Simulated scan of single mutants.
Amino acid sequence: MAKGFKIGVVGNRDAILPFRMIGFDVYAVNTGEEAHEVIDDLAGDNYGIIYLTEDFAKEIPDVIRHYDSQITPAVILIPTHKGQTNIGMRRVQENVEKAVGADIL
């Protein structure tokens, strides 16, 4: 990761607060629209990695697809304390399949 990039975490408050302890910037949101606005703001503010909770990712699939086509920021989906929806794992499998040419996971 290039020097100067920041890391942000966007999602519901309970799921993202622990990330503050390891030095990431955290942004609590309550709706998919708020998540969309925060992600756009972070993308314009030199964030190289944005972690997003899966519960909000499923509300804004077009935004996720948009940033998938960009070099930065990398939007990485994470499960919440409520469990995972497997959206993040499906994305990893799709990217591995694209890179390798087969589903090896």
Rank of each mutant, 00 (worst) to 15 (best):
H36A: 12
V29H: 01
N30A: 02
D55K: 06
Y51S: 05
F56T: 08
S69E: 10
V26A: 04
A57Q: 03
D62R: 14
N46F: 07
A35C: 02
A57P: 01
T72H: 05
A35S: 00
S69C: 12
D55Q: 12
E54T: 13
F56V: 10
Y51H: 03
S69K: 14
A35N: 09
H66W: 13
D55M: 07
T31L: 00
D45A: 09
H66N: 14
I49D: 08
D41Q: 13
I49N: 10
Y51L: 15
Y27T: 09
E33T: 14
N30M: 04
Y47D: 10
I64N: 05
G32D: 00
E33G: 08
H36R: 04
V63W: 00
D62S: 15
R65H: 14
G44M: 06
S69H: 13
D45S: 07
E59G: 02
M21C: 11
T53Y: 05
A57H: 10
Y51A: 09
F56K: 08
P61E: 03
I50T: 11
D62P: 14
D55H: 07
I71H: 12
M21Y: 09
A43R: 15
T72D: 02
Y27E: 08
H36N: 13
I71S: 15
I50Q: 08
G23W: 12
A57K: 12
E34K: 03
T72K: 15
D68G: 11
E33Q: 02
N30E: 04
P61I: 05
H66R: 14
S69Q: 13
D25M: 09
R65D: 12
E54K: 12
N30D: 06
D45H: 07
M21L: 14
H66Q: 09
V63S: 11
V29C: 03
S69N: 15
Y47G: 10
A35Q: 05
D25N: 07
I49L: 13
Q70V: 11
E54A: 15
N30S: 01
A35P: 06
E33Y: 04
D68V: 15
K58E: 07
G23L: 09
V26G: 01
G48V: 15
Y67W: 11
R65W: 03
D62F: 14
N30L: 05
